[in-house]
Every structure is written in C-alpha cells, then in structure tokens.
C-alpha cells in the first residue's frame, strides 16, 4: 500500500489540514515510510490466532443509567472562542 500526492491532498482536506503544495511530495514519502513499517506486520503468521481487540485483558466497563454529570455550563463554555446566551457561538454555518 502506498499513497501519492493526490491522496495526501485529499486526506489533508478531509482532516482540515492546510498543507502547501510543495509539502505534499515529502509528506507522501514520510507517510509511505510509516505504511511500509506497518506493512512488516503482515509477515507474521497469524493463522489460527484469535483477533486481538485490546492489549488489556478487560471487558468493556458498563455504567448504570444514572444522571451523575452536567449542570456545568460555565465550565463547558469557558474555552469557547465565543458564546452567546449560553450557546457556543460559531461563524454562521449556512448563508
């Protein structure tokens, strides 16, 4: 598996990263190095090995259906660049 310039550009756009055109080529190279490195894992024979979903031997923890949180609007909004009337205020999303 390898990525080219166009793929890097598309992924960057989906992730909302601005990447200058002259950075695309070197970035594709770096990403391909990482992919090659991961690719080495496929050399390991995993026949008959149960798929591993986690490195810890735990089951998913379940919580009870109880309201234990909330009521902290000021804290929630404290890092927002802007807020109005208790809402987050963001640039208008539609015209």
């Amino acid at each position: 598996m390898s990525v080219d310039k166009a793929t890097v550009k598309r992924i960057a756009n989906l992730a909302r990263f601005r990447i200058e055109d002259e950075r695309l080529e070197p970035l594709a190279g770096e990403l391909n190095n990482i992919l090659d490195w991961i690719e080495q894992l496929s050399q390991v024979d995993t026949d008959g090995v149960k798929p591993m979903t986690s490195v810890v031997d735990h089951a998913l923890h379940w919580r009870a259906d109880e309201v234990t949180d909330g009521g902290k609007r000021d804290a929630i909004l404290s890092n927002a660049p802007a807020s109005e009337f208790g809402f987050f205020a963001v640039p208008k999303v539609i015209e």
Partner: peptide
C-alpha cells in the same frame, strides 16, 4: 457514554458533561 441527563427542553448546554 456519559452521565449527563437526556432531558428534553433544558437550558442550553446544561445537560453536557466534559465527555
């Protein structure tokens, strides 16, 4: 995935956890 209330019609952002 959080302990915040699901109640409808509450004050804005009052049923919100850090999650």
């Amino acid at each position: 995935f959080s302990g915040a209330s699901t109640e409808f019609g509450s004050e804005p952002n009052s049923n919100v956890s850090l999650v």
